[in-house]
């Protein structure tokens, strides 16, 4: 998956978790939690949805890397390319 596709995927998943959020104004390098009112349950649902969309296994110790939009894209891209090799 390309970075752009991944970005779209993350935004779509985020839109399902927080449908009221204005994602066009989301700052990609700032943590979601500072911009959206997400709690740990929302975050878990977010991780599960990312997993379902990309089939990437995301261990709990990697959660911190999913804190922002850029972080998510980078992490998922890295994991996907590692899987392909």
């Amino acid at each position: 998956m390309k970075h752009d596709d991944l970005r779209q995927t993350v935004l779509r998943v985020l839109g399902e978790i927080a449908p009221e959020a204005d994602l066009e104004r989301l700052q990609p390098n700032v943590a979601f939690r500072q911009q959206l009112d997400l709690d740990s349950m929302d975050f878990l649902n977010f991780v599960i949805a990312l997993h379902e969309a990309t089939q990437v296994e995301i261990p709990e110790r990697d959660y911190w890397r999913l804190a922002s939009l850029d972080g998510c894209v980078e992490y998922l891209a890295q994991r996907l390319s590692a899987r392909q090799q």
């Binding site: 740990s40 349950m41 878990l44 991780v47 599960i48 997993h51 296994e57 995301i58 261990p59 709990e60």
Partner: peptide
């Protein structure tokens, strides 16, 4: 919890809540 979640898939993970 950390050990437990380590062996659980993402959909089965527990929150401390």
């Amino acid at each position: 919890l950390a050990a437990e979640n380590e062996r659980r898939t993402v959909t089965q993970r527990l929150l401390y809540g």
